[in-house]
Computed example of a mutant assay.
Amino acid sequence: MTASVLAVHLSPTHSFSKARRDQITLVAGRGVEGDAHCGETVRHRSRVAADPTQPNLRQVHLIHRELFDVLAHAGYRVLPGELGENITTDGLAVLELPEGTRLHIGPALITVTGLRNPCQQINSFAPGLLKQVLRRGENGRIERLAGIMGVIDRGGTVRPGDEVRVELPARPHRPLERV
């Protein structure tokens, strides 16, 4: 199966969910044009409060459509964009990608920086949902299932239906950590 873009989203405000769009424009070194999180330095409020000069390693947020199937099985109806992602993928195991993976989507190029660290805000969207996307695995380690973050190396327009081509980094691969 070829990986592809299922849907794209943005929000000009720091709202939890993002509105579906026909296309989004990725801007190199900044993020999604028109999105509240677009910028060279951090834009997430908690990170700005800690140190507003930090580089923005969370310029674009991707979630795999398959997560919604897992959540539905647990009794949660979640649609693309509702968890705040910019790009919903289909057929791509995003959580299994190593740090530094490059994703070619249409003309754009994204470098994966790490895992999204879901926060308590997710329970405001649906009570109990945080326990579904932030949990302890069988090995006792914390599992973060709410998607991945990346930076834009080459900008361009991304649309639903665009193919996602994966370019793995050189070995040894480093597992994704929270960013």
Rank of each mutant, 00 (worst) to 15 (best):
M149Y: 15
R159E: 12
S124W: 13
V164R: 02
N123P: 08
Q120L: 10
H73Q: 12
F68K: 01
R136Q: 11
M1C: 09
I87Q: 10
V48G: 06
S124R: 15
L97P: 11
R47E: 00
P107T: 03
G106Q: 08
M149D: 10
D51R: 02
C38A: 15
V158G: 11
M149G: 04
S46L: 05
C38D: 02
R135C: 13
G147I: 10
G150Y: 06
G34D: 01
L71K: 00
K131F: 01
H173K: 12
A28N: 05
I152Y: 11
G155V: 03
S124L: 15
M149E: 14
V42Q: 06
V8M: 11
T88G: 14
D69F: 05
P175Y: 04
I142F: 02
G150A: 09
E138G: 07
L57K: 14
D90W: 03
V42F: 01
N123F: 04
G106P: 07
L67S: 08
I122Y: 05
I142V: 14
L10C: 09
L176N: 11
R58K: 15
V27W: 03
N117L: 12
A108H: 08
I63T: 08
G31M: 02
G29W: 06
M149H: 14
L62N: 00
R47C: 00
L109C: 08
A19E: 15
L95D: 15
L95V: 12
Q121S: 14
R45E: 15
I105H: 02
H73T: 08
V151E: 15
D162T: 00
L109N: 06
P118R: 04
T157N: 07
P160K: 08
G128F: 04
